[in-house]
Amino acid sequence: MQTVRKPTGQFARRLGRAVSRSARWLQRREHQAISWLVAKGLPATVAAALLWIVKLAVAAGLLYTAFWLAMLLMFAVIASWAINNTSSDDDELAEWRVGLSGYGLYRGDTRVDPGQPDDEN
């Protein structure tokens, strides 16, 4: 008999560690960038502010892109909904049945197939 394994949370633990490593890597790169800017003669506070401005610009660009993608998706959904919900008398479904002009394809009370000359009336 095979024993049933209980979930141990390994995936969540590994994912957390990967996110933590990525965050530490980014933090080290940020400190390196500030150190490089300070070495080039920029004050430390200005270098830190400059990095914050870059971060905010990237975040704003991502939000701007996400907004327009969401708007595009919304318009596509509304357009498809509008196309599906439009109805007119011409859109009435045709059906095969016996009608005033014999058996044929009728849309409402009008036969729409050409029929055969020997059809019964």
Rank of each mutant, 00 (worst) to 15 (best):
K55C: 09
A49S: 11
V98A: 08
N84A: 15
A39N: 11
S101L: 10
L51P: 02
A60L: 14
W68S: 12
A18N: 10
N121G: 06
Q10D: 13
A70G: 13
A47G: 10
I53T: 13
M1Y: 08
W81Q: 13
R28W: 10
R29S: 04
A57W: 07
R24E: 12
V19T: 14
D89E: 11
L37S: 05
S88H: 07
R14S: 08
A48Q: 12
Q2R: 09
L50M: 07
T8K: 06
W68P: 01
I78D: 05
V98H: 04
A94G: 11
I34F: 00
A79G: 11
L56N: 03
E30W: 03
E95R: 08
W81I: 10
Y106S: 03
G9C: 08
Q10N: 11
M74K: 06
Q27K: 05
T86V: 14
D91M: 15
A59W: 08
R17S: 10
R21E: 09
V58C: 03
A18Q: 15
L26F: 06
V4S: 12
V58R: 08
G99T: 01
S35T: 09
T45H: 12
S22P: 01
Y106N: 02
W68E: 12
G41H: 05
G16T: 08
P114I: 03
S87L: 10
S101Q: 14
T45S: 14
F75Y: 09
D109W: 00
K40Q: 15
V98G: 01
I78E: 04
A59G: 08
Q10Y: 04
Q10I: 11
D91F: 07
F75T: 12
A12Y: 08
T110W: 00
L26T: 03
P43Y: 02
E30L: 06
A70N: 11
R111C: 00
M74E: 06
D89H: 07
Y103T: 07
A66S: 13
I53R: 10
T110S: 07
K55S: 15
R107M: 03
P7Y: 08
L72T: 05
R97C: 04
G102Q: 03
L15G: 02
Q116W: 08
L93M: 02
A44S: 11
F67V: 12
R24K: 14
G9Q: 09
A59N: 07
E30A: 09
S20V: 04
F11G: 01
W25I: 02
D91I: 00
L93C: 00
K40P: 00
A33L: 13
E30F: 01
M71A: 14
P43C: 03
T110K: 06
V4T: 14
E92W: 00
S80G: 13
P43V: 04
A12P: 00
W81N: 11
A57N: 09
L50N: 07
D90K: 10
R13Q: 14
A12H: 09
A49T: 09
Q10S: 08
K6G: 02
A94Y: 00
M1N: 05
V19E: 14
G41Q: 04
T86P: 00
A59K: 11
V38R: 06
M1I: 07
E92I: 07
L37Q: 07
T86M: 11
M71T: 05
Q10M: 06
R28G: 08
A44K: 15
L100D: 12
L37T: 01
V19A: 14
G61K: 02
W36A: 15
L93S: 02
V112L: 05
G9F: 05
W52M: 14
M1W: 06
G99Q: 05
P43L: 05
N85A: 03
R28D: 07
